[in-house]
Structures are given as structure tokens and as C-alpha cells.
Write a protein that binds this DNA or RNA. Structure first.
Lengths: 99, 99
DNA sequence: AATATATATCGACTTTTTCCGATATCCCTA
DNA sequence: TAGGGATATCGGAAAAAGTCGATATATATT
């Protein structure tokens, strides 16, 4: 687990918001037609909610993914992102004891 | 607790190292003449160990302090910094449940 | 009061991050 | 296989962070 990379990923307001939205997609996003929320939320919906450009949001999701905070699944032309809860648990433990 | 400010403070290799050193000053720093480690470690010792200039280390300690991760005590001409463990505990809980 | 030592602050320069528009890639359907 | 929609990648401008040297401030000693 690369702590520094994780903290950098968390050092941005929009990225923190995205992580919060992904915590409970059903209340944060409109119903998804092509997939349930179990697989995640597609980039387009996240982008609309964030109010930034598509390229920026795509980049932000990559940053979160490289840090291990989210994972993605491609289904057809959509990429769905969801939280990687194990990483949050690990991080919480690291802060308790290793930092 | 300002999460974003905390994560920014933690997004730097040297600052993470400083926090680790402060976790066990007795093994990380030479004996202090003018005060025990209970009050913290003085800026000069932290600076030597970090290998950066005095101004940079002083700035870094301010950043950590503004984030609530350390606190300082002035004794004579020295300023001693020590960890603020409550903040780490709080942060760990926030990551468990609020992020 | 003058000097010395420890720390903080300031101004400048460099590097990194933020965020965009344009373009490329991937996948679907006609 | 051509066109369209979703996402990723690239290149760049602007803002923020990293880092330094110089200077200011605070305290201690003589």
C-alpha cells in the first residue's frame, strides 16, 4: 500500500466528493439503465455531478484507481467505477498504527 | 476536522517521515539537553535529520500544525514539536466511516 | 546594550497539480 | 464497415506546492 499516493489522491475536493457519492450511489445518482449500481457508476454520471469536463473526471478516476481507492469494470461502452472498501479499511489501520 | 487540509499535509514524503520520527523520538533523535522528549523535539534536530533547509522544515512543521497533526511548545529559544495523537485517532475513524 | 543562537517569515524560482480542449480509442448498432 | 456514443489520452495554460537564501524576531548570555 503506497500511503503517499493515497494521500495525494485524497488531497482534492472533487475526488473526495466522488468517493462520497460512490458510497451510496442510489441516493447520489439517477437510476442506471444499462447496469445496476453493484458494478459501479459510469463515468458520464460522475462527470455530470462533478461539473467538470469529461477529461478531468476521467483523469481523476484514474488517480483514484491507481491509489487503489476505486476499481473499474468495463461493460460495453461504459466504464463503471466503484469503491474499493478494503483499501479504506487498510488505510484506517495504517493511520492507527503505522504513521 | 478539516479532512482536506489533513490529507494535503500528509501528501509529502518528508512530512510523513517527520511524523514517524516524532512517534518515537528517543530512537530517532539524539538526547536533548534542554528538555525531555515529552515536550517534543526541537526544530533544529528535525531539520538536521530531514536534510532540508531550516526555513523549509519550519514551514513543514507549520503545515502539520495547522492540520492539527502536531502541536508546539516554546521553551526558551527552542520550539518543541510533538504529535497530536487525538487527530490521528479521529482521522482513522473518519476514514472508517465518513469518507 | 551587544552579540549569539533558534525559529519564523518573506520573496523568488522551480516543480507539480489542476483543469481544459482536442483528439484518439473502444465498442455498439445500422 | 461507417457512424455515433462513451471513455481515455495528450498537450498546454494557470494555480499551487516545494524549496531555497536572506532577513526578521525572539530569547539567552555576557
Amino acid at each position: 500500500m503506497k500511503q503517499l499516493e493515497i494521500f495525494k489522491a485524497l488531497s482534492n475536493k472533487t475526488r473526495l466528493e466522488i468517493l462520497l457519492w460512490l458510497k451510496d450511489p442510489a441516493t447520489s445518482f439517477p437510476e442506471q439503465v444499462h447496469a445496476g449500481f453493484e458494478v459501479g457508476v459510469c463515468v458520464g454520471e460522475i462527470q455530470k455531478k462533478a461539473g467538470l469536463t469529461q477529461s478531468t473526471v476521467s483523469e481523476y478516476l484514474s488517480i483514484l484507481q491507481r491509489a487503489g481507492l476505486v476499481s473499474s469494470t468495463r461493460v460495453g461502452q461504459w466504464t463503471y467505477y466503484k469503491r474499493n472498501e478494503e483499501t479504506f479499511i487498510e488505510l484506517s489501520k495504517i493511520i492507527e498504527s503505522d504513521i
